[in-house]
Structures are given as C-alpha cells and as structure tokens.
Amino acid sequence: MFKGMNEVDKLALIGGFRAFGSSIIWPFMGFALYKVYGFSLTYVSLFYLIQAFVSVIASISGGIMTDYFGRKRMIIISIVMSSVALFIAYIINLPIPVACLILIQSYFSSIYNVSTTTIVGDMFKSSENLVKAFSRQRVGINAGWALGPLIGGYVFSTYGFRLLLLISSLLILISIPLIRLLPEFKGKSSVLDFSVSREFIIFLIPTFLTFVIIGQLGFGILTYYTSILDFTEFQVGILFAINGVMIVFLQDLMGRIINKRIKLISLGMVIYGLGYLGIALVTNFYLASVDIAVITLAEMIVTPLSQTLANSLASQKTRGKQIGLYSMVTGIGRIVGSSLISELMNYYLYTPLILWGVISSFGFISACLYYIFLRKLKSIL
C-alpha cells in the first residue's frame, strides 16, 4: 500500500503518525507533574533542567549511533523504547517513577529527532529541496499535532493523565511498518570524528535562542492560560489544534514562498517575538486564537529554514553527529524555555507584560543574530 509513495510523502506520513502519538501527551507532561502528581513549580522547573541534561546526552550519543548503526535502525529503536517507557509509567503511576520514565522516553525521543532530521539531509541535497522536504514533513507532523492535543486535552479533562500514558505508548508504534520502507544511510567517519565548521557553531547561537521561545508552545502557554484566564485544558488543546491545522493546510504554500529565501528566518523570529509579547494582551479565548495564529505563522517560516540551514552546513560523513549537536541545542533551548517560564511564573505570573516581555526578547535578539550571520554566509543563500 505504501510502496508507491515518494520519499517525501513517506516522511510526512511517518511524522504524522509519530506526532499524533506523542502530541496526545507531550503538551500536558509538565502540567500533569504540577497538577496531578503534586510537583511545585520549582520542581517542575528542576524536572525540565534535568530533561535538558538528558537531551544533551541523547543528542550526542544519538548522533554517534545514527552514524554508526544507520538512520532507519535508530528511528525504529527509539520508537520502540519510547513506547516501553510510557507503558511502564502507565502501570506504575507514581510521581517519581513517572517523572523518571518520562525522562527515559525523552532520551529516546531526542534520538528519534536526530535520526529523522539526518535522514532528510541524506535524501535531499540542495537547500531548495531541503526546504520543500522539511515543509512537507511538517505537514504530516502537524496533522498529528492538530488532532493529538485536542484528544489529549479531552482525555486529560475527562479521564485523567494516566490513560494518556497508555494511549501514547500504543499510538507511537503505528509508524514502524512505514519506516521499514525507507532507505538506510550511515555516516562515513570514525565514531570519534566530531569535526564541525566554524559557521555551524556560530549558527547554533541564534538557534538556541530560537528554541527557547519555541519551547513555550506547551507548558508555558498551558499553565498561563489555565491559571490566569481560567481556560480549561480542552480549550488550550483547541489552541494547539489551531496551530496544527494551520500548518497542515498552509505549510506547503509557505514552503514555496520561503524557498530560496533563507534570510526570512530573521523576519520569522520578529513575528515570534511579537506573537509571544501579544499573550500579555490576551483577555479571552478569541484573542488567544488570533495570537496562536501569529505564533504559528512564525513557526511555519522559522522551523523548516532552521532545519535546512543545519543540514546545509553539515557534511555528509559526519551528518549524524552534527545534526545530533543541532538537536542537542534545540532540545536544550526548548527545555530551558519551559524551565525559564516556570521560574518566571513564581514571580511574574500576575505581571504578564514582564513575563512575556522577557520571553519575547529571545525572538528579537535571535532575529538580529540570524541577520548578521546570514549577511556573511553567501554559499547557501
């Protein structure tokens, strides 16, 4: 049934299945530790810091294993082990074990991200084809994200978080038969070869700031809206669904618009900054819906261009390790973002202009750094 599909559509479908299973639970993890398992905001912040450390280990080790064992093999291993961790968490259902098993699942999820980003870079060489491939892949991923949080929010509100652990552990296995149809690639360097260009290292600086702000689409938005504006988890799930639906229907079009226009990543970061600053002005669900649309517009510009830049700057022989480094920085950025907002909420939860002003500043600073970096980088523009 799937053998006649082209490789881009296979990647989109795999991303959709995987995202559907993951997005049922991921936006609610930090919130569940806070509300269901009784963690304080400080301990939730600590959890995200530990997760950042786990992400570092997973990204580096995942990059090495992706080069050594092959991209496809590591994708399958990471999915199976993620499923096992969530299933055990469902069975045990005690605060500390659940938190630890979520961290284990996070480890394998990071390896999955390294492997899938690397295999796209192997399959599509030019920056033009990479933008198209990553845009199409995001259509699939966000088709899953459009439905997952909506169902997750309903199940969480109605039946509780524990059932989400079981559902997620089963759903993320669906994509394995399709993954087996992908070609296999391996790195060509030794295990200890970590050669990285100066340009790649510089690129990682604004990348980190980018993913600090991207990381707010989860714990930060969920906790703020439920605490300050009394939105239900289901209503926030609808906001996440708006994000996913917009990307499903508009990402391909956006991919054609931004193709060969790498410098638009700076504009995307400005829009990100404005979108998160706008949260401070939201007073009802309708305004929240408009604001999430602005944030999604930024995401549709920034994410495929960031992935394209990472793969264009990486070499074939050590692509797995370099994308592992990129994944490490993006993962730490997301987690630092969640940890930062958790800590800021201890002091500024009821002062939204300060709270979201701090967060939005990461977008504006990142936009400036991308602009300076890309002015000096001519080879892939």
Rank of each mutant, 00 (worst) to 15 (best):
I257F: 14
Y37A: 02
S23I: 04
K378M: 02
F156D: 13
I50P: 00
I76R: 13
P149D: 08
P177M: 02
M269R: 06
L264Y: 15
I91R: 03
M269D: 05
G357H: 05
S126N: 09
S59H: 07
Q322G: 02
R256T: 14
S266C: 09
G244K: 03
G244I: 12
F31L: 12
I247K: 03
I141N: 11
S190C: 00
S135F: 09
I262R: 04
Y276H: 08
L229E: 09
W356C: 09
D230Y: 11
L192Y: 12
I341T: 12
F185Y: 15
F87R: 10
I202L: 15
T308H: 04
G357F: 04
S127C: 11
R180T: 09
P304Y: 04
L163Y: 14
S266E: 13
K321R: 15
T210F: 06
S110F: 07
G140I: 06
L49I: 14
V120F: 08
F161Q: 06
L147V: 15
S366N: 09
T283H: 14
L164M: 10
L374H: 10
F285W: 07
K260D: 15
F240I: 08
F124V: 05
A143E: 05
G218F: 00
V80K: 08
E7F: 04
L250M: 13
M269S: 02
I75L: 15
F362S: 11
